[in-house]
Write a protein that binds this DNA or RNA. Structure first.
Length: 326
DNA sequence: AAGCGGAGCAACCGCACAATG
DNA sequence: TCATTGTGCGGTTGCTCCGCT
């Protein structure tokens, strides 16, 4: 693709990001947002490609990231979602506020896979090894997580496949049941607005008018009542569904989110760049921002939100942040 | 103390898709 | 309709750390 030569031509930096680079990027995004990643490096004065900036922001600098070890509940959720979604890390990540797809992918590849194997479960099929021998391929958990449009005969058949696979898996939930449970309020299997159309949406073919990124959005709603009950009930978990109810249009009210969930000194959150900034960069947990990448209205809203969240941090912690070292 | 190997993690690569001209 | 550009995603690589010998 000529990417290498492009990098050489532009003398772009690669490899680990320095604190100075992080600072530049963070400042730039706080000030201008990121309407176009390709222009960010130039505007921010970075010798990086836009892609690298985007990745750095998403996986590391974003203020709503939750760092540190995954809890057992989070691991369980990942396993359950993987049984249904396969390697669609971004969709799985959408269900875990503050976690990135990269983080989850790494966790899966390094820890969870191993654990499952040790317990006699094939991480690809989520079935006991003894049961797999001689059985048909598992459509859901095949190596490549990306689902091509051409593979989608229809949303309904895919949905059925997913459901079949999930229900066949030991101990894992049935999508239809979940959606049915969700339907006690607004959705039903037969009228799930997310699944009516198979237009050009990636993955599971969603109704574009609803513009939520994926089926994950549906499970956000569903899982909020099922998965998260055992989790921290005063943070993200209890809000996922309200986000849905709010009609996919409401960004978190930062004034009410304020103080809702910060990284507390007692938390075992690992702080790297923030440590560089004297170790006191406390970021609010803003689950909707990460978990619900709205498409409609999107970039401006997202940028605006990023700016707001950063500003909020800045306001709350003025003694620390203005002291960015240069 | 040095070497080795595995684990964990950050970042890169290549591809697919969407948007735009 | 086609080409180009931008973005997002999943797979993979390579570096660092740490425990073991």
């Amino acid at each position: 693709m000529g990417k290498q030569s492009y990098l050489h031509k532009q003398k772009l930096r690669r490899g680990l990001w320095s604190p100075e680079e992080d600072e530049k990027l963070l400042k730039h995004i706080a000030e201008y947002g990121h309407t176009s990643w390709s222009s960010v490096p130039k505007l921010a004065g970075l010798q990086r490609c836009g892609k690298s900036c985007r990745l750095r922001w998403i996986n590391y600098l974003r203020p709503d990231l939750k760092r540190g070890k995954f809890s057992q509940e989070e691991e369980d959720i990942i396993i359950e979602l993987h049984a249904v979604l396969g390697n669609r890390w971004s969709q799985i990540a959408a269900q875990l506020p503050g976690r990135t797809d990269n983080e989850i992918k790494n966790l899966w590849n390094t820890c969870i896979k191993k654990k499952l194997r040790q317990t006699g479960i094939d991480p690809n099929t989520h079935k006991p090894f003894s049961e797999i021998e001689g059985t048909e391929d598992d459509k859901i958990s095949s190596g490549s997580g990306r689902l091509k449009q051409t593979e989608l005969e229809s949303d309904l058949t895919l949905m059925q496949d997913i459901e079949d696979s999930a229900t066949k898996s030991i101990g894992y939930f049935s999508l239809s049941k979940l959606i049915c449970s969700a339907s006690t309020t607004t959705l039903s299997v037969s009228s799930n607005p997310l699944l009516l159309h198979n237009q050009n949406n990636r993955g599971l073919g969603l109704n574009p008018e609803l513009s939520c990124s994926s089926i994950a959005s549906a499970t956000t709603f569903v899982s909020s009542s099922i998965f998260y009950n055992s989790m921290d009930s005063n943070s993200s978990s209890s809000k996922s569904s309200s986000f849905w109810y709010d009609g996919l249009s409401s960004w978190p009210d930062l004034t009410t989110e304020r103080g809702n969930k910060y990284l507390l000194p007692g938390d075992s959150e690992e702080m790297k760049w923030p440590q560089y900034l004297q170790g006191n960069f406390l970021a609010p947990s803003l689950p909707h921002y990460q978990s619900q990448p709205l498409h409609a209205g999107d970039l401006q809203v997202e940028s605006h939100f990023a700016l707001e969240s950063l500003n909020l941090c800045f306001q709350n912690h003025q003694p620390e942040l203005p002291q960015l070292q240069s």
